[in-house]
């Protein structure tokens, strides 16, 4: 916990209301029972996590597998309720509930999943896929224009709208998933390992695109990854999760130069480097 307190000092305090804020998030999962009659143990996935994302800020959350990243994402996306703690979007509290009640929130906060290409329904056209959140969220206006704008923002040709995912290249499919998240014009993008498992060439393109969206569109980005190299390209501030706790929360360049916590040091050292 000390690391958190010392780390917090380095962050410039803002008077702006954060677009997305978590306070004291705690979440446990039931462990499978050894025997049917044995008492069910619980695994603590998150243990008192605080986090604030300022408008237009790019924040990285890194940690190795099992550090609580996925649990944190589910809570921030209101897919799961915390055992303790709160999530706020602007001034409004967010908790899981019926799709209709959460429409305002989903319009604000959109999501780019891990391996985005696999999240495209193979039966649907690109146009229908990108329009799906507009339809589901009841966004008024001409959806076709919104789809075209979204495709343009990820630098995809509007003619692609009639294709199906099977006819796209890997890089194009990634962009379609990104366009789908951008279509309702959100102010926050949560990205879960958006480039892991991609060829290096495609990875570089997607990273460049995300950087541009933040720079030119003022989109706030929360990037969750196990790969510090990707986070360091995109995020000015990085938060390190270890065993469900925030162990560092500092500007990324400082973190890379002088990691304090052992978990942070392991993450920094794990990035493979080509010999010069």
């Amino acid at each position: 916990m000390n690391a958190v307190l010392t780390a917090r000092e380095a962050v410039p305090s803002t008077t702006v209301t954060p677009v997305l804020q978590a306070r004291g998030l705690r979440r446990t999962h039931p462990l499978p029972r050894r025997r049917p009659w044995a008492p069910a143990g619980r695994l603590t996935a998150l243990d008192g996590v605080d986090l604030a994302l300022a408008p237009g800020e790019q924040l990285g959350v890194v940690g190795s597998s099992g550090s609580g990243k996925s649990t944190l994402l589910r809570l921030l996306l209101a897919l799961d309720a915390p055992d303790a703690g709160t999530v706020h979007c602007g001034d409004r509290a967010v908790s899981p509930g019926p799709a209709r009640r959460l429409r305002w929130f989903r319009r604000q906060v959109q999501y780019v999943p891990q391996d985005p290409a696999s999240t495209l329904d193979p039966r649907m056209t690109v146009g229908a896929l990108v329009a799906e959140p507009l339809r589901a969220l009841g966004v008024p206006g001409d959806h076709r224009t919104a789809v075209a704008t979204a495709l343009e923002r990820v630098r995809l040709d509007a003619g692609l709208a009639s294709r199906r995912p099977g006819e796209l290249s890997g890089g194009q499919a990634q962009r379609v998933a990104l366009a789908r998240a951008l279509a309702p014009a959100p102010t926050v993008l949560l990205a879960d390992e958006p480039v892991s498992g991609l060829d290096l060439a495609v990875r570089a393109q997607v990273v460049e695109l995300l950087a541009e969206l933040g720079r030119d569109r003022g989109l706030a980005l929360l990037l969750v990854s196990h790969d510090l190299s990707v986070v360091s390209r995109l995020c000015s501030r990085t938060l390190v999760l270890d065993a469900g706790r925030v162990v560092e929360d500092r500007p990324t360049d400082q973190l890379l130069a002088t990691p304090r916590h052992p978990a942070a040091r392991a993450l920094v050292e794990a990035v493979p480097h080509l010999p010069a």
């Binding site: 897919l79 799709a99 959460l102 429409r103 319009r107 999501y111 329904d121 799906e132 959140p133 589901a136």
Partner: peptide, 17 residues
């Protein structure tokens, strides 16, 4: 269980849809 259905709730699609 497929990724393209599991992502739908986050996009705002309700269970009936």
């Amino acid at each position: 269980a497929s990724a393209y259905v599991r992502v739908l709730p986050v996009l705002g699609v309700g269970p009936l849809a």
